[in-house]
Simulated scan of single mutants.
Amino acid sequence: MASSRDRQRKLARAKLDRQMARRAATLRRKRRIQAGLGGALALVLIGLGAFWALGGFDKEPVNTATDVCVWTPQEPGVNVNAKDVGLPSTTDVPTFGTRDMAITTNQGNVTVQLDLTSAPCAGASLTYLAGKSFFDNTTCHEITTEGALHCGDPSGTNLGGPTYTFANENVPAAAPTPSPSASPAPGTPATYPAGTVALYPNPPGANGSQFLIFFKDFTPAAEPAYPIIGKVSAGLDVVDKISKIETVDNGNGAKVKPKTDVTIQALTVGAVQSNPADSGATPDPSATPSATATPSGAPSGTPTNAS
């Protein structure tokens, strides 16, 4: 009996030893796994710390239309005068420098220097539309009482444009003491000097393709509404010649339609010029442009943000 009990005790002790060995092995495995995870986590934290120290989490500015411009599509069929040419690109919108917009008309040629720094979305939109031949063979349908040639509406109704709009840019501040006669106070530069090129939002704040080329100084009596997009760099004499064309009723009771058609035969926009050269001396806005010499610079009083 003693021998049987000894055998049972030995078997029980052996079983206990095996259980303890298994437990010890399991514990060692858990510790190795935990140590490995801890080491991996430490490496991850060290890597993230180094990435942060090197500026990896700093937000890099992305120069795209998504960040700079918002193109708002119009509802289909709402504006029967709108022309569907799609939407401008949502990437690679230049936000500095200038572009030359060349306007070939049946009355002569005009070059506009677009200001991409102050009006990048306008520059992007005009470049896109010009690439679609949007303005070709259209008429400048008004010589406004404010002293500007009104172009860019293929329908000639003041309601036409592309099937998208975009918000105002670079609208000048109101004159300190606006004159009821829409003329600046003595010594105060005009809000829109002759040679200024601005968009014509319709409705207000919603821009499309319509633009104004001012042939004389203009300061509105009310809050300015036209976003400045650039200036005439050549051909102001052509605009001045057009301004002298007789106007007739446009069908809505306003005597603003040119009696002789002013047709844009072609409109193109050139490449970005990052460092445009100084255009030279500023012409005297009171002087009448010569029919044989094209002013090379912005008219006197042109706002610096339109240069």
Rank of each mutant, 00 (worst) to 15 (best):
residue 219 T to Q: 07
residue 220 P to L: 11
residue 221 A to M: 09
residue 221 A to Y: 15
residue 221 A to F: 15
residue 221 A to R: 12
residue 222 A to Q: 14
residue 222 A to C: 01
residue 222 A to D: 15
residue 223 E to C: 00
residue 223 E to G: 03
residue 223 E to Q: 15
residue 223 E to P: 00
residue 224 P to H: 12
residue 225 A to T: 12
residue 226 Y to N: 13
residue 226 Y to W: 13
residue 227 P to D: 05
residue 228 I to F: 01
residue 228 I to D: 03
residue 228 I to S: 13
residue 229 I to S: 06
residue 229 I to R: 08
residue 229 I to D: 04
residue 229 I to C: 10
residue 230 G to N: 06
residue 230 G to F: 08
residue 231 K to C: 10
residue 231 K to L: 12
residue 233 S to A: 05
residue 233 S to P: 00
residue 233 S to I: 13
residue 235 G to I: 06
residue 235 G to V: 05
residue 236 L to E: 09
residue 236 L to M: 15
residue 237 D to R: 09
residue 237 D to F: 00
residue 238 V to S: 07
residue 239 V to H: 03
residue 239 V to T: 08
residue 239 V to D: 03
residue 239 V to I: 15
residue 239 V to G: 03
residue 239 V to S: 03
residue 240 D to V: 03
residue 240 D to R: 09
residue 240 D to S: 13
residue 241 K to V: 06
residue 241 K to M: 12
residue 241 K to G: 08
residue 241 K to W: 07
residue 242 I to N: 07
residue 242 I to A: 08
residue 243 S to Y: 03
residue 243 S to N: 02
residue 244 K to I: 02
residue 244 K to A: 14
residue 244 K to N: 10
residue 244 K to Y: 01
residue 245 I to F: 11
residue 245 I to E: 13
residue 245 I to S: 08
residue 245 I to P: 04
residue 246 E to F: 02
residue 247 T to G: 03
residue 247 T to D: 05
residue 248 V to W: 04
residue 249 D to A: 04
residue 249 D to G: 04
residue 249 D to N: 13
residue 249 D to M: 06
residue 249 D to Q: 06
residue 251 G to A: 07
residue 251 G to D: 09
residue 251 G to M: 06
residue 251 G to I: 05
residue 251 G to N: 07
residue 252 N to F: 06
residue 253 G to Q: 08
residue 253 G to F: 04
residue 254 A to R: 10
residue 254 A to D: 13
residue 255 K to A: 08
residue 256 V to C: 03
residue 256 V to P: 00
residue 256 V to Q: 14
residue 257 K to R: 14
residue 257 K to S: 08
residue 257 K to T: 09
residue 257 K to P: 01
residue 257 K to V: 01
residue 258 P to H: 13
residue 258 P to A: 12
residue 258 P to N: 12
residue 258 P to V: 11
residue 258 P to F: 12
residue 259 K to L: 10
residue 260 T to A: 12
residue 260 T to E: 14
residue 260 T to F: 00
residue 261 D to R: 10
residue 262 V to A: 10
residue 262 V to C: 09
residue 262 V to G: 09
residue 263 T to Q: 13
residue 263 T to A: 11
residue 264 I to Q: 10
residue 265 Q to I: 10
residue 265 Q to P: 01
